[in-house]
Design a protein around this nucleic acid. Structure first.
Lengths: 137, 137
DNA sequence: TCATAATTTAGAATTATTCTAAATCCACTT
DNA sequence: AAGTGGATTTAGAATAATTCTAAATTATGA
């Protein structure tokens, strides 16, 4: 009797490997790539494989325990923050920062009307110079 | 005396290859991938190579003649629309639509203040179901 | 014309990610 | 406690997108 919710019963288990990956992502405010997560995970569980890291990240993302950020065509980054939030990307060094602007959420209905899409979520992305790069110029 | 602006003088020329690529991107409202642009460009200039398509796309993007859209970790898409605008992405079929919400631009300063970034541009992305996929559910 | 710089080309290389097939693990059943 | 089936893990191969390399070509301008 799988109700479709949560992790339970036979399938969809939070295995030791998945726990390790989750722990790594939750252990930092940074937005790690799969490669960085693999390195960190191997320190906690040396036998873990690259494929399992990818499988686990997908699993955790599908379960809503972490979120995936994809910018540019570089490697995906994984974020422990799963609530709605916005991003700022540095056009100089690529640095990525989270922030939350309540006004963004308010644009959901407006954006839906304009695009004729049935809305699910909205994200605002600010492109600019991070404090470090901005100071240099 | 390169003033740093526009296309002129020796370097940075709009070669036949680059013109063809530009013509392909400008020739449709769709958002083509590099592979699709390569196919179309070869019909106009059979000798053009894949690498040149990539080089040209980068050149045209840097010159501000086209814009590059990167979603998920699939292939970049190229857009003839270079002005500020927003995107709606269908979470079901991946369809991508442009629209413009003037309210988004108004959030630039607010987002800059919150993130402490020196702002350059803002971009809103709506995730949801496109009209077709929305009708099915 | 000659020299120099920019550009194009084909194909190799790189990077990120997914796939495959075999091995392992786990919860049940007999 | 042995057997079964499903889920998961593993190592490595495969794929896809993009960038790099080195040689050839083209344009530019003294």
């Amino acid at each position: 009797m799988n109700t479709g919710s949560e992790i339970e019963g036979g399938a969809r288990a939070l295995t030791p490997q998945r726990q390790v990956v989750l722990r790594v992502v939750r252990g930092t405010e940074a937005h790690l790539t799969a490669a960085e997560i693999y390195d960190a995970a191997r320190r906690l569980l040396p036998s873990i494989s690259y494929a399992t890291v990818y499988n686990s990240l997908r699993f955790l993302r599908d379960e809503g325990l972490i979120s995936e950020i994809t910018f540019g065509n570089s490697a995906s980054r994984y974020d422990r923050e799963t609530g709605r939030h916005d991003h700022a990307v540095c056009t100089e060094c690529g640095r990525l920062t989270d922030f939350d602007l309540s006004e963004t959420a308010a644009l959901l209905k407006l954006a839906a009307r304009r695009s004729k899409f049935k809305p699910q979520s909205v994200h605002l992305t600010l492109y600019g110079l991070c404090p470090d790069c901005g100071a240099k110029s």
